[in-house]
Design a protein around this nucleic acid. Sequence first.
DNA 1: GAAGGTCAAGCGCA
DNA 2: CTGCGCTTGACCTT
Length: 206
Amino acid sequence: MHALSALIDDLFAPSVVQLVEDAEGGICYWPRFVDADTAQAWFECLRANAAWSALQRPMYDRVVDVPRLVAGYALDALPETLPLADMLARVQAFAPASYTHAGMNLYRDGRDSVAMHHDKLHSLALGQPITLVSLGSARRMLIRAIDGHHETIAIDLEPGSLLRMSHASQLTHEHGIPKTQREQPARISVAFRARMRDDSDHRRHG
DNA sequence: GAAGGTCAAGCGCA
DNA sequence: CTGCGCTTGACCTT
């Protein structure tokens, strides 16, 4: 019975969903980028072995925790303990680009979140997309047009899914992961980006 | 070196 | 319940 409904889900599941249109491919969602077992294995390995850090930010007159854990890796120096090389190869097959970095977020539960934002374009290579792999439990993302009617798209990012956002779409849309009251197990997002150069050298100088 | 953008939690509102 | 817009301030980029 469950096997049958899963089969029906598979038959009717779209292979790709176009969420936003633009000249560079807009924002595109593949619900079944990898199979569930692979997604689960990646999730467990990353959660256990990635170098997660907890950040803080000032908020009014106190310091609060950033509501998620973060980790980042350069793709030319990947630790062998992580499945990032395998992930990159499979991302390249769906959304080829000259990726250089993988940035990861761990949303532990429904209280973790990211505010609406667009990715910083000054450090990203022109025309190169940002491609997001979702692992763990599904989590709702909001995508909102900046001008016009501020139309908002809500999409539940499923484990094993892939979301490709064009460089151009970062100028017209912002995105975020709102907090939720629902029971919400952990999710990891892995964002592959193409940085035009390493600009981490000349910060914090004098 | 001045100016502008970012993004955290909590509130009230629809 | 969910989304949205407002608030302050340290840190960042331009």
